[in-house]
Design a protein around this nucleic acid. Sequence first.
DNA 1: CGTGTTTGACCGGCGC
DNA 2: GCGCCGGTCAAACACG
Length: 315
Amino acid sequence: MRSSWMNANLDLNLVSFPFRAAAKEEEEHVNIPINFMGVGNKVSMNDEASVLKEELNRLKEENRRLTNTLSTMTEDYTALQKSRLGLVVETTSRKRKAENNQEVKSDVVNGSIICSLNNDNVGESSSSEGDSSKKPKEDPKTKVSKVYVRTEPSDTSLVVKDGYQWRKYGQKVTRDNPSPRAYFRCSFAPGCPVKKKVQRSAEDPSVMVATYEGEHNHTNCTKPDTLTASNRGGAPAPPSVFVNRSSANPSVTLDLIQTTLSQSCLAQAPRREIDSLELEKHLVEQMASSLTRDPGFTSALAAAISGMVVRNSPM
DNA sequence: CGTGTTTGACCGGCGC
DNA sequence: GCGCCGGTCAAACACG
């Protein structure tokens, strides 16, 4: 993809500003003068503020560009996913008329394709067929959705990570698919009516099809990487479903700008004009504190400072 | 020993 | 009515 150059850009941007921000904090709290470069003349607070403001504006612009690039990449990725897996979306079950009448709506979430099957039109067409009375106990409005997950073909475990805890209660080999179908019930909450069926796609064994029935009557409190039924018996590692959003890469600071803006300031006063200076100060503090919490950064900073002190010290 | 999985048996809907 | 098939149950089993 195009991520390599993006990372390079991110890294480049992070070199200057955060270091400056951390240096500012050092100056304020640890009494290490920011002019340790040996210049000698003390920079006034106003100059410092204007430099920071300038830097922040530049970063904002860069952030906006990268956000645009990211959204473009996301769209490309979505289109690619749909073109690769969209063919499987069409239901393979020809037996159940109701299913064939369902309106299929697909979407890509976290690397999986989610298809919602709208049951609302089932009742309308059933009047002529006269089988509405035969409709099983299942509520016609039960929300049914399908998730298509690409996994390793060699991986035989029928486990799909989705953030909930499931208890397997059955497994069957169906007629139209040589691979077994596993039945799960949501065990996160005692009364949760949601069921899940997981089966490999007949067309593409590397694709797992998870069918969800019903809606959870509880919130999802687990993280995506903790979920599903436990992996006992030395079963193979479950497939990676979700795009890994965690990153040890310092480029995460870019996101920090976004979240800081939206959560702590903009979210509280969405329509009000916000004191830009206050906001910038808050941003700098956030970045500085997050960076100084990183032992790697602090040790690198200490090494850089000590190196400069050694260079500038009289022999 | 508690919890979750496995797997054969059972049940009910559907087509012929 | 019979057989097929998908879905569920529950006893046995495995694991920590």
